[in-house]
Amino acid sequence: MAFFPPPLQNKPPTKPGVGMNDWARYVKANPLETIVAEEGRTAWKRVEIVVRDDWMMLQSIHSSDIVNSSPTAARCKIQHHRAPDEYCTCGWYGFYDRFHPQLVPFLSSQPLMEVYLQGKLIEHEEGVRGEWQTPLGIYLDHPNHNNGLIGVFLTSYNQQYFSVEQFINDIDIPVNVGGKWMY
């Protein structure tokens, strides 16, 4: 007699808010209230420095979307609706706390960035999802980042060294190096 594994419905239920599809289940059980505000809010996130042949750009480490210096709209790649949606996981992500454990510096090619989220916002317990994202500044706080005049980036894909000046020239976003702003 052959052995067949149990169907997926026999999996134990996960805690609400842990899995991706549990957000829709949670929102159906607890409908969200909608309020209108005059201004958006700032949040913190990690970005990835992607090195091309002779220039650099930024990507979101969670969605792999390119981060521009200008306001950029989020788009849902799953259901193609307005992002973010309360029954989906799309949108620009950000954490309230700058010292959140999920934002600890791990790679020197993943600096911390403060963003300004506008449009439709969905507030979560520890973070927020937004429709429009505008980068405010990048904080080079990793120990591999040189705290002096010439910073060093050790990228994860091809290990090369770049200067902060070239980084600022390519991404066009203010950079905070050791508490000093560089434009």
């Binding site: 957000w23 309360e86 954490f95 999920q102 449009g119 439709k120 979560h124 317990e125 429009w132 505008t134």
Partner: peptide, 19 residues
């Protein structure tokens, strides 16, 4: 996917102004 907890409320804020 970042884990940011369960959703709490929706806020509608004005869109960015492009000059």
């Amino acid at each position: 996917m970042a884990q940011i907890g369960v959703p709490k409320r929706i806020i509608e804020t004005p869109q960015p102004i492009f000059i």
